[in-house]
């Protein structure tokens, strides 16, 4: 008799809002992770549609009436910084390269958030780990494209759709 592997039925409830058919809402984000050959810094640039940011900021203030409205996009930046867990590191050692926050700005129809990491050698550029689990109970773009270019002319990319939260990429 075939032995069946027994798994505990473990269906977690996650509170993603159910979006109706909004084929024409943008709801897409791009993140580029590149090694700047001049500075030897890892530069991480998150590019959001301002349209999406405005929607979320509006919802945030609707549900947090006491929030400080002076810096309305800060709430969004804080949300992204606290929920996007992106690490760069080596295959054998722990992933210690946390990202430093550089700044954020609006430009045209986009909203950018900038981060950097400061690797000391190529040994620290072997692996990228991404964990967006913190976003399970709130907004996450339906289509999130990550472009990674650490070695010159060796671009890699992956997409996390709305139900995908973790990704690991060997460089």
């Amino acid at each position: 008799m075939m032995k069946l592997l027994q798994y505990t039925f473990s269906v977690l409830l996650i509170g993603l809002s159910c979006q109706s058919v909004q084929a024409h809402r943008l709801d897409a984000t791009e993140t580029s992770i590149k090694l700047n050959p001049r500075t030897q810094h890892i530069e991480v640039i998150h590019k959001f549609y301002l349209h999406d940011v405005n929607h979320l900021v509006q919802q945030h203030f609707a549900s947090n009436p006491d929030a400080d409205k002076a810096n309305k996009n800060e709430a969004f930046v804080e949300y992204i910084l606290s929920s996007v867990d992106l690490k760069v590191g080596s295959l054998t050692q722990s992933l210690t390269k946390e990202l430093a926050f550089i700044g954020a700005e609006e430009d045209g129809k986009f909203f950018y958030i900038y981060q950097e990491a400061y690797p000391e050698s190529y040994d620290e550029l072997q692996l990228i780990q991404l964990d967006l689990s913190e976003m399970q109970n709130s907004w996450k773009p339906s289509h999130w494209l990550f472009s990674v270019e650490i070695q010159p002319n060796d671009a890699k990319s992956f997409v996390l759709n709305k139900a995908e939260y973790k990704y690991q990429l060997e460089l």
Partner: peptide
């Protein structure tokens, strides 16, 4: 439609309220 998440070797499958 509403989100679902397939199982991985580390995490169980997940289904949204939606």
């Amino acid at each position: 439609g509403p989100a679902t998440i397939g199982p991985t070797s580390e995490t169980p499958a997940q289904i949204s309220f939606g």
